[in-house]
Design a binder for these strands. Structure first.
Length: 540
DNA sequence: TTCCGACAGTGGGGTCGCAAT
DNA sequence: ATTGCGACCCCACTATCGGAA
């Protein structure tokens, strides 16, 4: 057994004293460590603080400790959010709660349903909070509310586990990506030392964190960054990972939620493939009779519905991670695609153009034309993938680059909201309006993205000069500032007056050279995003 | 010494299920 | 029936740390 394993033994074990009662980790210890982690800026220091607590945990409790310090609850839904957490009870004077106590309370909370559920949840969560000291309450409120804000989440928790057990951080990270939860890896590491990592490999039926793409400005930039590559269509739907082992099929989302029961079309498609076992990566979308994609909103609505019926969905696959007992993660993109093409019929695969020599002008032109055709067919854009790259589960690697068209509009700031966290005291979230013919403005959405600290500072000062009201949350201003906004498209909206809202709006720059009368109109916004008048999809 | 990969934070719109009103 | 909350689908961008170059 490696020397590191001794660190996991309870005090006294090394002297031959048998630990009759091991003591559970106290919530107080977690709350203290969390506050210390939040108080230091260095990631090495945060990691060391986390590791210090993991060393004290019993293997059986490690999953809870790691989960809490990564800001996640093992019970994914508790039914308790920020609203229910308002007006907490008076704190306890003395710490008494253990980590298993908290877990038991949250499990009870998650089980509440039916008539009177909201009052019962409030009663249960207040009962838990009443047993917590002030420091523990601060921790629990942020943990349950989903906003730990200690500058460390999953990644640093995993680093901490590695440090606590003297394991190679890269191998621990790999085990977490392939083996599921950080908690399970932490438990095995604490119990058996680094040798336990070898057992965490891809297993059909257990989802792995999907590989993600970075962003490129356009196809040309992607080709320049990648070299030999393939250009694939990017479909605007819901990411799915499909596992089939014999007759058993499961379907998981990007965050590894099990949605098998909602997607019978996908399980049927997987069951029909000529394999005994397989793990596929893909997207579900919905196509109309002409083969054009339905808007994302409709796909998300169908996927979110528990019934498993409604708008028919089509799975489209772009990668294969395992087939018939062989793990393929280490193979190159080109090799994995060859396997995919062998086992998945063409209509169930994304369209793709291989570009082995992006330096060749003809090949570049073909790649650009492929991307243009994808857009003409109504899809979102392209993902460009390096041909020689392995599948790096859970990473947003530089070997996959997505490129989507970006629209811009010059809009008028109608109001701004006070920021939170590091933006406290700054006006952050902008309300954006497009001009109407009568000189009034129609709000098309909000954004807080794209702002540097300097711009944040400037806009706070400038908007306060223009303020006409401030209710402590929203500051309304005279509509005089023009700001250039980038966005990915428009979506139907029942919230905003024009019946549409901006998707993924972000600030490009302020246009102090423009007066509000020169801002873009609602009609210009509809036209620029390809929404004729009337809009292509009926409004609610 | 500078550069760059990885992370965390800061929130956006929409939709569903469920419970309360 | 309508409304509000919680959860989760899609997501962009900046600041920062610390190892790579």
């Amino acid at each position: 057994m490696p020397a590191a394993a001794h660190r996991c033994d309870p005090p006294g074990a090394a002297r031959g004293v048998s630990p009759v009662h091991h003591k559970s980790v106290l919530l107080d210890a977690l709350a203290r460590v969390s506050a210390e982690v939040a108080a230091v800026r260095s990631r090495t220091a945060k990691t060391e603080l986390l590791a210090g607590l993991f060393r004290q945990a019993e293997p059986a409790e490690a999953p809870l400790v790691v989960s809490y310090l990564a800001g996640r609850l093992p019970q994914r839904r508790t039914g308790v959010g920020w609203r229910t957490l308002q007006d907490p009870p008076a704190p306890a004077a003395v710490p008494s709660l253990t980590v298993p106590d908290v877990d038991a309370a949250l499990t009870a909370l998650a089980a509440v349903g039916g008539q009177g559920a909201q009052a019962e949840r409030k009663r249960l969560v207040d009962a838990l909070l009443a047993r917590a000291t002030e420091r523990e309450q601060r921790f629990l409120l942020r943990l349950i509310g989903g906003e730990l804000r200690q500058g460390a989440l999953d990644a640093l928790a995993v680093e901490g586990v590695a440090a606590a057990t003297s394991a190679d951080p890269d191998e621990v990270r790999r085990a977490v990506m392939l083996g599921g939860s950080p908690g399970a890896v932490a438990r095995e590491l604490l119990a058996h030392g680094p040798a336990a990592l070898a057992a965490f490999r891809l297993r059909v039926g257990r989802p792995v964190l999907p590989m993600l793409a970075q962003t490129a400005k356009d196809v040309d930039e992607a080709l320049d960054r990648l070299g030999p590559c393939a250009v694939e269509e990017k479909l605007d739907g819901v990411r799915v990972q499909v596992h089939r082992d014999g007759a058993d099929v499961t379907v998981h989302t990007r965050t590894l939620d099990d949605i098998t029961a909602r997607l019978p079309e996908v399980t049927a498609a997987a069951a029909a493939l000529p394999v005994s076992s397989v793990v596929l990566d893909g997207e579900v979308i919905a196509l109309d009779a002409d083969g054009r994609p339905h808007p994302f909103q409709e796909v998300a609505g169908r996927v979110g519905s528990r019934s498993g019926t409604g708008l028919p969905l089509s799975p489209v696959f772009f990668d294969v991670l395992a087939v018939d007992g062989r793990e393929l993660l280490g193979l190159t993109t080109a090799e994995r695609h060859a396997e995919l093409a062998r086992i998945v019929p063409e209509p169930l695969r994304v369209r793709r153009l291989a570009v082995p020599d992006p330096a060749d002008p003809a090949a570049r032109a073909a790649a650009r034309e492929f991307a243009a055709e994808v857009l003409r067919r109504g899809h979102e854009g392209v993902v460009v993938k390096a041909l020689d790259a392995p599948y790096t589960a859970g990473r947003r690697g530089a070997s996959w680059l997505k490129a989507k068209p970006v629209h811009t509009l010059d809009l008028v700031v109608l109001a701004a909201e006070w920021g939170h966290g590091r933006r406290t005291g700054r006006l952050s979230n902008l309300h954006l309006g497009a001009r109407r013919p009568d000189g009034t403005f129609a709000m098309l959405g909000k954004t807080f993205k794209g702002l540097t600290d300097a711009v944040l500072e400037w806009q706070t000062r400038r908007l306060r000069e223009l303020a006409v009201s401030d209710d402590g949350w929203v500051v309304r201003v005279r509509p005089e500032l023009v700001v250039e906004i980038a966005y990915d498209g428009l979506q139907r909206s029942s919230r905003y007056p024009a019946g549409v809202a901006l998707r993924f709006a972000r600030v490009v720059r302020y246009r102090e050279d423009k007066r509000p009368e020169e801002a873009d109109t609602v009609d210009a916004a509809l036209a620029s995003a390809g929404w004729g008048s009337p809009p292509p999809h009926p409004l609610p």
